[in-house]
């Protein structure tokens, strides 16, 4: 076969839609987010406070139902600035780049949360920085009710 020749390709556009059941624990969490409130769920055996919450501790193999409050501020554990635009699954639009993405350990949780970072001044992003959530005014009970996290001075 001639390696220099472009072979015919067939273009297919997919338009598929699924509805995900959130489950009891994620429903409670998202309803809280809509009200500007964050909660984690604590394992009664290992004591780990999971955020996002989940129905089951995979390590101890026990159900989780001990809810504990979590602050909307915490510590930046890792950060990156992404320069490749991505498709935003919620809007179907391309998300402008560059954007910051961090792993944030909120006060009161033992796991880290993935979220956007304010990158107005990327030089302020350092591991160990204190960060706080910037909330959307028109909340709808979804993860992007928090616009991003900003570094506290």
């Amino acid at each position: 076969m001639d390696a220099d020749r472009d072979l015919l390709s067939v273009s297919l556009e997919m338009d598929l839609e699924w509805r995900y059941a959130s489950g009891e624990s994620m429903e409670r969490f998202l309803l809280g987010v809509g009200a500007g409130r964050l909660e984690a769920v604590r394992c009664g055996v290992c004591g780990r406070r999971y955020l996002p919450p989940r129905p089951f501790c995979g390590v101890c193999r026990v159900r989780l139902d001990d809810w504990v409050p979590v602050a909307d501020a915490g510590t930046l554990e890792a950060w990156t600035v992404v320069h490749l635009p991505i498709l935003d699954g919620r809007t179907g639009e391309m998300r402008p780049s560059p954007y910051g993405m961090g792993l944030i350990r909120l006060d009161g949780a033992d796991t880290t949360l993935n979220h956007y970072l304010d990158t107005a001044d990327p030089s302020r992003l350092t591991i160990g920085s204190r960060v706080r959530a910037v909330w959307r005014e028109d909340r709808r009970g979804a993860m992007d009710d928090i616009l991003h996290f900003e570094v506290l001075s």
Partner: peptide
């Protein structure tokens, strides 16, 4: 149709009952 539970909740339900049926632990 539908089952309002999440996939994880449905799976957990049958796993716990299957273990009980088999008289086994995790």
């Amino acid at each position: 149709l539908p089952d309002p539970r999440s996939i994880a909740e449905m799976a957990l339900n049958v796993v716990e009952r299957a273990l009980e049926d088999a008289e086994l632990r995790w």
